[in-house]
């Protein structure tokens, strides 16, 4: 099997229908996600944004097979998900590379699990590392790499098994702003070349718009889908598009949606006055006098 053949666009459909997940506590069951339905078409790039704690990672982990829904169903190409598997590649925020394996060893790991022979493993890993510009680092251990390099290895490792869907959980959250922009570019390039379905979780609105075909916006906990936004920006995308009025319009819309939910997520006490800093009237006195 040549892993570089693009997945036929008929594969990689993800359906999450009426998904709900709750967990038990002493006070009774607590709902993390109440009712969410999301769909990823084959070859589509879809993002989930939402306030922190809204359950967007929970959704992703359910697609990965780490969590079982309390209600509703998760299927990939019509098949219900039963535990984690190599048909869904996952990229983590903390990179989670194996520190005891070299860069190449990390990339080869999934192929080793598929019992591929050494020479074809080697060839596949080299090809992918070349695509990510990491050939010079193939024999280095992860600890000696920068964050951006580590995450490139993380993405390449997840792609090596030729998954139908790539799941990314805030993959660039730990990177600095400049590196993040370059990583986004690399990811779109690889995605366009490999024609693979992508489900991308982030709290960065710019990132979601820049990368995606569609963006789901979630409500505060218990999470559900608040809005679904189609991103009409043409491909290939360039960084300069982030300054276009179309982009800024999308950004404004998404921003206000999320702001509402973020305030809800932060608790009922936060009202507009508190946010504007006017909720405490000091009547001209200094704070020390009042206290």
């Amino acid at each position: 099997m040549n892993i570089m053949t693009p997945t036929p666009p008929s594969k990689g459909r993800v359906d999450v229908d009426n998904f709900a997940l709750s967990y038990d506590t002493l006070e009774g069951p607590v709902e993390a996600v109440s009712n969410a339905s999301i769909h990823v078409n084959p070859g589509e790039f879809v993002s989930i944004v939402g306030p922190s704690g809204c359950g967007k990672s929970t959704l992703l982990n359910a697609v990965a097979g780490f969590l079982k829904p309390t209600r509703g169903g998760v299927t990939v190409d019509g098949e219900p998900i039963d535990g984690p598997g190599a048909d869904r590649g996952m990229v983590f925020q903390q990179y989670s590379l194996f520190p005891w394996k070299t860069v190449k060893g990390n990339v080869e790991f999934g192929l080793k699990m598929k019992h591929l022979d050494k020479s074809s493993r080697d060839r596949a890993a080299r090809t992918l590392l070349g695509l990510a510009g990491l050939t010079a680092f193939e024999n280095k251990y992860p600890d000696s790499l920068s964050g951006g390099m580590k995450q490139r290895v993380g993405i390449v490792r997840a792609l090596a098994t030729g998954p139908k869907v790539l799941l990314l959980d805030e993959p660039f959250g730990a990177l600095d702003a400049q590196t993040r922009v370059i990583m986004q570019q690399i990811l779109t390039n690889m995605w366009q070349r490999l024609k693979i379905s992508v489900l991308f979780v982030t709290h960065d609105i710019d990132e979601a718009i820049f990368l995606s075909d569609r963006v789901y916006c979630m409500t505060a906990r218990p999470g559900s889908i608040k809005a679904e936004i189609t991103i009409p920006l043409e491909r290939p995308r360039h960084q300069s598009m982030m300054m276009s009025s179309e982009f800024l319009g999308l950004r404004r819309g998404l921003m206000s949606l999320i702001r509402e939910e973020s305030i809800k997520a932060m608790g009922g006490e936060l009202n507009d006055l508190a946010l504007d800093g006017l909720s405490i009237d000091l009547h001209g006195q200094s704070l020390a006098d009042v206290l």
């Binding site: 990965a64 984690p84 190599a86 590649g89 996952m90 989670s96 790991f109 699990m113 598929k114």
Partner: peptide, 9 residues
């Protein structure tokens, strides 16, 4: 979990 996602048993 990373290993499981890569097909490890």
């Amino acid at each position: 979990r990373a290993a499981q996602c890569l097909g490890a048993r």
